[in-house]
Design a protein around this nucleic acid. Structure first.
Length: 774
RNA sequence: UGCCCUGUAGCUCAAUUGGCAGAGCGCCUGGCUCUGGACCAGGAGGUUCCAGGUUCGAAUCCUGGCGGGGCAACCA
């Protein structure tokens, strides 16, 4: 199912092409986490993509730990990553790899580049190297060590490995181009000296490769075909290619980039998440508010919901921020048919049924599932004189549309009776402490009654219900995109604890990892971290959509909240408007045209071409000569248009001199189009043929036209067929939707494989439709 | 200010490669219902970033402009 949802995104299209062209025989991808933190929902997107690709194309996905930095990496994170990926249901078989296992190969390959004169040891201090790199707009400067002899470089590099030098005293750099417009190509660093203990390699190494040097080569070692990473690495791709080319590795992997996941009102930066953990702002990596997979798992989210979410947001190159509401929808959808409904009151308000006998307890057999979930099962629920209802289900002064209990009003108790509230008992502050209600006989669930309460509320029996703690969560941040000052955006009431909650007694016999829907509230389960506590602790996995019982945020923090009145219930986590589509200065946009140089202006004037056409031609080598030569017998404007819009784009940057034809043949083609001897469509087809082979335009046109539907009787047959096949649209057209004309023309073009003359077709259709109008 | 990526409904994405601009989520209305859920039916919501050009026809091709993101770690 989810597979089908994952339609052909740009990556799948590339893979399809590569498979079809034989560029790749099979699909080998990899998921390459660095073991320096816990995986989060963003890693879920990436791993769902990669492991999904492997499954769809019957290839494989390697798990490779990108562990080239001994300072931050740890076995603990390796374990966490493996555990979480397994939980997600991903299987990498025996293909578990570590970049650190490739250190020896990488070293050898680096020596190879040194001997080819493509890498050198630089003795410059860190700051000097940085200073000489230049800026994005200014070129860098060459290091004085840049031209060391390969033999000397090799000797030094081996000494680096042997531990002869101090940390930071030397680096190995690739020798590329210090003036390259892409800064990643300005003699990038390949190795640094770090006398540090690596969590896997111990003290075997004191030089460590950088990402760019390690990654592509690791891909190559593993035979990866498609190396899929996130957008921020797109500038690294040129370097990725350079290393592989320099090493002359074949067949080699190729890198493709997609947009990482951003989720509104949360963060997916390992650095920032680590900060929350270290500072104790959250209760560890698996705090249920964390976007980590460990946090989601503890929260009670099932991996299938995460996968559905990841597939439904798609894979593109557009940097976007997903609405957390979509994730929540996937979680609800996943749980709806698998979580039995039970009753739990989070914030109890006692009620007494004054007309119910004190010693009478009725055991109600209540179904676990609502009518629309085709599952069976019931549990006993005690009902007596003393009950508890949700405090927010009662209102003395009900707002408009309130469908719950009010003084004098009636309401249905879920699975039980209709009651009426007769009296409100209050404390000295005016707060309701107990409702005196009457039970209405004969209104038990399932029995016929003429009473029509406006709503149904949940409840529990006062004495037999079980005390529990319920923890509910609001979003961790108050800003949709927390940014660098994320600590200031923290939501002070992201955790709401209900200490006096009461739950129906049936749960005592249930498995502790059972997930429930608390009727009218949301989906819940027991916190796995407190699974054996005497007082059960329940976690809210996700609220119901438009749940009435939001988890309130204390009033005193309201002023700190972005939208003071906005109770942050997860489902209204709509993004506030982002000025993303803003295109200002709409009205006076005419003045926005680029100012032309004097030369350009002069040329444009002389050529008589429009600016758009002229600028496409101006500056292309030999183009204006070509234009002049071709314009001898045809209108210059026509030639210009054909050049700018058809010829030059088809050339894709190749020089005009590479054309198999000259200006006069081109002029002949333009002439055919101008004179009407060839339709635009035909002329384009001729151009295509001219680019691919020899032959005069007129001759080629004859070939094209021989298969043209020139016969007007045949054409009107086809027109008739199209119209009768789309009667509904004909009606719509006649009703005024004249834009449909293009659709009809298109249909005819399609049926004739583009061989009908569009003008003639259009005229025929209009004529035909005019006939039908009367 | 250089290079790379990128602009389609409130959000996330489609659009058979130039031929009716659609889906899911969200929102609204109605139906059903003993959950303000789910489900069913319907609806609103678009200058396809803007301006030109080519074309019978442009979200799609061409030119120019504007907006958003990334790149100057001995991080990945």
């Amino acid at each position: 199912m989810a597979r089908q949802a994952a339609a052909a995104d740009f990556i799948r299209s590339i893979i399809d092409q590569d498979l079809a062209s034989g560029m790749a025989e099979r699909v080998i991808v990899r998921f390459p986490p660095e073991p320096n933190g816990f995986p989060h929902i963003g890693h879920a997107k990436s791993s769902t993509l990669n492991f999904g690709l492997a499954a769809e194309y019957k290839g494989r996905c390697h798990l490779r730990f990108d562990d080239t930095n001994p300072a931050t990496e740890d076995q603990r994170y390796v374990d966490a990553i493996k555990r979480d990926l397994q939980w997600m249901g991903f299987d990498w078989g025996e293909h578990e790899y570590y970049a650190s296992d490739y250190f020896e190969t990488l070293f050898r390959w680096a020596c190879k580049l040194i001997l080819k004169g493509l890498a050198y040891v630089d003795d410059s201090p860190e700051e000097v190297i940085r200073g000489m790199r230049g800026t994005v707009t200014t070129p860098g400067k060459k290091s004085p060590y840049r031209n060391r002899a390969p033999e000397e470089n090799l000797e030094l590099f081996e000494a680096m490995r042997a531990g002869a030098f101090a940390d930071g005293s030397r680096v190995l750099r690739a020798k590329i181009d210090m003036a390259h417009p892409n800064m990643k190509m300005r003699d990038p660093l390949m190795y640094r000296i770090r006398h540090a203990t690596h969590y896997r390699q111990g003290d075997a190494w004191c030089i460590y490769p950088f990402y760019d040097w390690a990654h592509g080569q690791s891909d190559a070692i593993e035979g990866v075909t498609h190396s899929i990473c996130t957008l921020e690495f797109s500038t690294n791709r040129v370097l990725y290619d350079w290393y592989l080319d320099a090493l002359e590795i074949a067949p080699r992997p190729y890198q493709y980039e997609f947009a990482r996941l951003n989720l509104a009102y949360t963060i997916t930066s390992k650095r920032k998440l680590l900060h929350l953990v270290r500072e104790g702002i959250v209760d560890g990596w698996d705090d249920p508010r964390m976007p980590t997979l460990a946090g989601l798992r503890r929260r009670g989210v099932r991996p299938q919901a995460i996968k559905t979410f990841c597939n439904s947001i798609g894979t593109t190159k557009v940097d976007s921020t997903s609405d957390s509401g979509l994730l929540e929808h996937c979680i609800r959808d996943d749980l709806n048919h698998r979580a039995p409904r039970i009753l739990c009151v989070q914030d109890p308000l006692p009620i007494t049924l004054t007309n119910w006998p004190e010693d009478r307890t009725e055991i109600i057999s209540a179904p676990y599932w609502p009518h629309d979930v085709p599952r069976d099962g019931v549990r006993p629920v005690p009902f007596s004189r003393e009950l508890l209802i949700e405090r927010s289900d009662f209102s003395e002064k009900p707002p408009k549309g309130f469908r719950r209990l009010t003084p004098g009003g009636i309401v249905r108790l879920r699975h039980a009776y209709i009651i009426r509230c007769n009296h409100v008992e209050k404390d000295e502050t005016g707060k309701a402490v107990r409702l005196h209600c009457e039970w209405i006989e004969g209104t038990r669930s399932g029995s016929k009654t003429t009473l029509k309460p406006k709503g149904t509320i949940h409840w529990v029996e006062a004495k037999q219900s079980l005390p529990v703690i319920v923890r509910a969560y609001n979003r961790l941040f108050n800003q949709s995109v927390p940014g660098e000052e994320f600590l200031e955006a923290l939501n002070p009431s992201s955790l709401i604890e209900y200490k006096d909650a009461r739950i129906e007694p049936s749960i005592a016999d249930d498995p502790r990892e059972q997930r429930y829907q608390f009727t009218r509230l949301g989906f819940y389960w027991r916190d796995p971290e407190h699974i054996n506590s005497d007082l059960p602790v329940f976690i809210c996995i996700v609220t119901l959509r438009q749940a009435i019982h939001d988890h309130p945020e204390p009033a005193q923090v309201a002023s700190k909240v972005e939208k003071p009145d906005g109770v942050a219930r997860p489902h209204d986590a709509q993004l506030e408007h982002q000025s993303k589509t803003a295109t200002p200065a709409k009205n006076n946009s005419k003045s926005k045209q680029r100012s032309l140089t004097a030369d350009e202006e002069q040329w444009l004037k002389e050529s008589g071409l429009s600016a758009a056409t002229g600028l496409a031609i101006y500056g292309v080598p030999a183009a204006s000569e070509f234009l002049e030569a071709a314009s001898e017998h045809v209108s210059r404007v026509s030639v210009g248009n054909w050049m700018a819009n058809q010829l030059l784009p088809a050339l894709k940057g190749a020089p005009l001199s590479s054309l198999p034809f000259g200006p006069s043949e081109f002029a002949e083609l333009v002439q055919l189009a101008d004179s009407g001897k060839a339709s635009t469509h035909e002329a384009r087809a001729v151009l295509k043929l001219m680019l691919a082979s020899e032959g005069s335009p007129t001759k080629l046109l004859a070939g094209v036209q021989s298969s043209t539907v020139g016969d007007s009787e045949i054409l009107s047959d086809i027109v008739g067929n199209v119209l009768s096949d789309h009667e509904d649209r004909v009606d719509a057209y006649l009703a005024g939707k004249t834009g449909l004309l293009g659709f009809f023309v298109g249909q005819v073009m399609r049926r004739t494989n583009g061989k009908a003359d569009p003008r003639q077709t259009k005229a025929l259709i209009e004529e035909e439709l005019a006939g039908r109008a009367t």
